[in-house]
Design a protein around this nucleic acid. Structure first.
Ligand SMILES: NC(=O)c1ccc[n+]([C@@H]2O[C@H](COP(=O)([O-])OP(=O)(O)OC[C@H]3O[C@@H](n4cnc5c(N)ncnc54)[C@H](O)[C@@H]3O)[C@@H](O)[C@H]2O)c1
Ligand SMILES: NC(=O)c1ccc[n+]([C@@H]2O[C@H](COP(=O)([O-])OP(=O)(O)OC[C@H]3O[C@@H](n4cnc5c(N)ncnc54)[C@H](O)[C@@H]3O)[C@@H](O)[C@H]2O)c1
Lengths: 216, 216
DNA sequence: ATTGCATTGTGAGAAATTTCACAATAAACT
DNA sequence: AGTTTATTGTGAAATTTCTCACAATGCAAT
């Protein structure tokens, strides 16, 4: 498969959500223009992105919903479940547990970790919280490949190291610090403060950039 | 001032946090290489970004911490407070209220809004929650220019319209839907599901992209 | 069957963004 | 005062990303 840029991967995720809706509604085909409208981008962009899947549409009917949805699911490896863990069961961590617990059956949350003894050995939002000393062992035992980091900034590198030692291959980091990881571990950063600063900046300025980009 | 790209604005926010730390630690000067290390990027990138501020450093000492921090604060308009409001006091909304309440004195949260009568007219995390019918009026009355949207996807456009009518100029949207807004309103999207999909994809693949980008 | 038509797939061009690389320069040292 | 040295500021090249534009295509209508 062609090398797919991280931006394209992000948009394919958005298309997947749209295709799930279309499929649920019984719509059998969809045009790139409709997809573009639903995703808030241009039709050429959509077609270019779908090329990465080797998805094919026909000029008259557009893209077949069921088929492309399957290609998208394959692309994101829905069949091969990946196990997930969370570090930091604070305000944000709890919200994430509540949100991700129900949805996303292909990436079940197997464990949460926290340094606070008040929280350990308890079930929080349907997920057991373990002490941080168990991280390496449990990550390996549960075959956890994805980690979410929601601890304070100064604890982030520490839990990252333990996750990586245990065998984690991808990280979603909410802490506002860059993480040092081996080059084969993927890190996605989500810095809410930075995003708010961007909004603050453009809200206080006359010239807003033409097309708002959907990314992180 | 030169037109500054949204990516550069995001990185300037990161630099600002680093400069605040450096300043608090009493470090009077900093080199682009140090900044680059602290922010997880290249030194040339840092220097290029700082050009947008018209910040000047000297070859021998680097950038003067206090002065550049002030320029960054000016850039983000810290002096002119902008008022903030939240729509959707659910799991995520509460976490955000808890987090943003203390920090960010330059963008105080003036109000929260929720459709659930159980939540309205109560103080949650130090912020009063009002019914959605009050949105237009209170946004105008409190001079709210920034909104955070943390309602379910199908309610997002509705609250957006009310915010915009009230006079909001910038939006941070956690709901996974594109928002239709006038062209002079800036929207920043934060789609956690999409980011997790990206991590899932790269965690399940051998070739991780070389440099992980800090954005959204 | 043929025609007409809107849409796909994609090469090529445009635009945005990052990186290189080096002259200019400010401090430290002799 | 002059020399050395490391770093800034920034054109220009390189790379990445997006957009345009159109030939090829598949369906519907006649
Ligand atoms: N809550 C938000 O809306 C929000 C917004 C922006 C950024 N963030 C970031 O997300 C992270 C978490 O935020 P929060 O609001 O949930 O904080 P919080 O203080 O509510 O929770 C942090 C949790 O991490 C645990 N913890 C601390 N050190 C640990 C360690 N070494 N190992 C394991 N667990 C440890 C604490 O016990 C606590 O339960 C922070 O980095 C914060 O900057 C949060
Ligand atoms: N919680 C997370 O970690 C998380 C993760 C990813 C995405 N999100 C997104 O963030 C948003 C909120 O998520 P959540 O987990 O907090 O959901 P939630 O169900 O806990 O909270 C949603 C809140 O919005 C309120 N609401 C519903 N309709 C409304 C309306 N028309 N006007 C005003 N308020 C209304 C509800 O009363 C509720 O309090 C959703 O769009 C969700 O997709 C959340």
């Amino acid at each position: 498969m062609r090398n797919v840029s991280t931006k394209t991967v992000g948009r394919l995720s958005q298309y997947r959500r749209i295709f799930m809706n279309l499929y649920a509604q019984g719509q059998t085909h969809v045009h790139s223009q409709q997809l573009a409208d639903a995703a808030g981008m241009g039709a050429a962009q959509v077609r270019r992105d779908l090329m990465a899947l080797e998805a094919v549409g026909t000029p008259a009917k557009g893209y077949p919903t069921a088929q492309v949805l399957e290609q998208l699911n394959d692309f994101f490896g829905v069949a091969e479940k990946q196990h997930l863990a969370l570090a930091g069961v604070g305000n944000l961590g709890r919200a994430l547990l509540a949100y991700l617990g129900e949805r996303r059956p292909s990436t079940p949350i197997m464990a949460a970790f926290d340094a606070d003894p008040e929280k350990t050995y308890k079930e929080i939002q349907g997920c057991t919280c373990y002490p941080v000393d168990w991280m390496e062992d449990l990550v390996e035992k549960f075959k956890i490949t994805i980690a979410i980091i929601a601890v304070p900034g100064d604890a982030a590198q520490g839990v990252t190291d333990r996750f990586v030692t245990g065998g984690v291959r991808g990280i979603l980091n909410f802490a506002p610090v860059p993480l040092r990881v081996p080059s084969d571990v993927y890190v996605e950063y989500l810095d809410i403060t930075m995003l708010l600063d961007k909004v603050t900046y453009f809200a206080g300025n006359a010239q807003v950039p033409t097309s708002s980009d959907v990314e992180s």
